[in-house]
Design a protein around this nucleic acid. Sequence first.
DNA 1: GCTTTTTTTTGACAAATGTCAATGGAGCGA
DNA 2: TCGCTCCATTGACATTTGTCAAAAAAAAGC
Lengths: 190, 190
Amino acid sequence: MFELFEKYLRSRAAFTDGEMQQLEAVSVVKKLRKRQYLLQAGDVWVYNAFVASGCLRTYTVDAKGAEHILNFAIENWWTGDRQSLTSGQPSRFNIDAIEDTTVVLIKNEEFERLRQAIPTLNELVNDILHRSFLASQIRIHAAISYSAEEKYRQFLTQFPAFALRIPQHMVASYLGMTTETLSRIRRNLV
Amino acid sequence: MFELFEKYLRSRAAFTDGEMQQLEAVSVVKKLRKRQYLLQAGDVWVYNAFVASGCLRTYTVDAKGAEHILNFAIENWWTGDRQSLTSGQPSRFNIDAIEDTTVVLIKNEEFERLRQAIPTLNELVNDILHRSFLASQIRIHAAISYSAEEKYRQFLTQFPAFALRIPQHMVASYLGMTTETLSRIRRNLV
DNA sequence: GCTTTTTTTTGACAAATGTCAATGGAGCGA
DNA sequence: TCGCTCCATTGACATTTGTCAAAAAAAAGC
């Protein structure tokens, strides 16, 4: 499964074969069955995780037991808890598999070493961070500006692929509404 | 006013005097009166902007004329529209001054040149992006998980300084609620 | 193929939040 | 100081969204 990671990396930047070998040397492939945890709240997250196949979600569970989904991650996305990663504090998030999933894990210590050694990798990571920030701004704008229906419409436009493979109640959670509200919105859509 | 920018930079990383001079050479200080625009929707944003003093807001105006505030920026924060900056597309945001404000502007072309030439600057920028992303995640979590009252409580905890200098109706807009709702929440707070 | 679990939908009702209109106060500028 | 604009608050009411319970539909497991 490292091949999928390599394919992604080469599509995003020009890595030398030597650099690629360095990356492979520190990569660990992990397979997750549906519902299996990649991270549980309370644990410290110490990896960089690339999704080679499948789908994951990052979420919290509140005092009433309700789940709130921060992010989805499908193939060619990265996931993890950067807050826990950089602070060393226990994570408040859970990450688990929505489908059977394969991830490539690199311990952050080794990842940061390679980031220093491989400028191309560092630039790629910074570009991903930049894009993640821009995506977050779009989501914040939707969250504070849109009605439930508008949020769902925007979600469909922005992530059409997600709507096909993610259960509705998880989409509702991601959008900050109940599954009943989303169901009613869908009924009234043109 | 460049001194405030210099003070900030030196507090965040070890710049040489030569590097600082390079930065000063491309910096332009701009003073804004209360209500004055730094950016108007439709224009392309081409700067990096550091707030030396005062307070700005970034917001959109929807079809009904309602304003939705994406961000506030006070002294020692950065502001601007990175989406417009990196895409070259017209901005969908307005940025204007909530108080009389002084900003330090650096044209992005020159800023990127210095970022290449000064590794310390590049690292600082990447660190800021990283922090901005983490802050965005916190805000998204609040937006999809919390009630209006919880959002306001978290805001007070996270940004106590903002509550003192920003009009309530703007705080409400930032939190994605109406000014009436925020007024009622405040009445019922312990 | 059958059973079980998960997911989605529906209805009745409750709660939260928004809308509109009006008021009073605070602060600003001439 | 006067007048004006902006801001915060309040009440009445409308709308949106959530809650709870149940059933139907779909998917998963054996």
